[in-house]
Amino acid sequence: MPYPLAFALTLLVEVPLYVGALALDGTGRARATAAAVAVNCATHPALWWFLGRFTGTTAAAYWTALTLAELAVVAVEAALLVPLAGSRGPLPYAASFTANAASVLAGMLVARGLAAG
């Protein structure tokens, strides 16, 4: 999948999830949207570059790299939500985990559809 499509898909999936989750903490829609876009701008390019190093390797190596990289992204995005969205406690971590899990799944489905088509 080309990078612009992957990034657009990530934003399409993650931003509404972040906005909805952050509303539970009282974060306004504009601030939550800006925070969601910012955390993805901070993590997505590095994640894409890192995972590109495992393309063409064994399935085990790729899946291990994907899992570890996504766990790192969840932690970084959650930590960034604290100052950017004013979110506290477990909510930024739950929101980050949920948003990233959903976008990984969406990416897999789109990639499979592109490969089949």
Results as ranks from 00 to 15, higher is better:
Y62Q: 01
A32I: 01
A102P: 03
P16Q: 04
S103R: 14
A72S: 11
M1V: 13
L5H: 12
G86W: 06
G113P: 05
G89E: 00
Y18S: 04
L91A: 01
L17D: 02
A46S: 13
E70R: 06
P4H: 08
V37P: 06
S103C: 15
N40K: 07
A95V: 02
E77N: 05
L109Q: 11
L109C: 12
L91I: 02
A72H: 06
P2W: 04
M1Y: 10
L80K: 05
A72D: 05
T27L: 08
A95R: 01
V73Q: 01
A8F: 11
G20C: 10
A23H: 09
A23C: 06
E70Y: 11
A21Y: 00
V74C: 08
A60F: 02
L22Q: 02
V110T: 13
V104Y: 08
L84Y: 01
W49P: 06
V110S: 11
E70N: 13
A94M: 10
V74L: 07
A72K: 06
A38G: 13
A106E: 05
S103Y: 10
M1N: 07
T33A: 11
T58Y: 00
C41S: 12
V15T: 07
A65Y: 01
T33L: 10
A102I: 06
A102D: 05
M108W: 14
M108N: 14
L109I: 12
G117D: 11
R53N: 08
A42P: 07
S103L: 09
Y62S: 00
F7W: 13
P45Y: 06
A99P: 03
A95P: 05
R31I: 02
F54S: 00
L24V: 09
A6Q: 10
A116Q: 14
A75M: 07
P2M: 10
A72V: 12
G20Q: 08
T67D: 04
A111G: 15
T98M: 08
Y93K: 00
L114P: 05
R88N: 06
G26E: 09
S96E: 04
R112Q: 14
R29L: 15
A101N: 07
W49L: 15
W49I: 15
A79P: 06
G89T: 00
A23G: 10
F50A: 14
L24W: 12
Y3D: 12
H44I: 14
V15N: 02
S87D: 02
A78V: 03
A111E: 11
A38C: 11
G89L: 00
Y3Q: 08
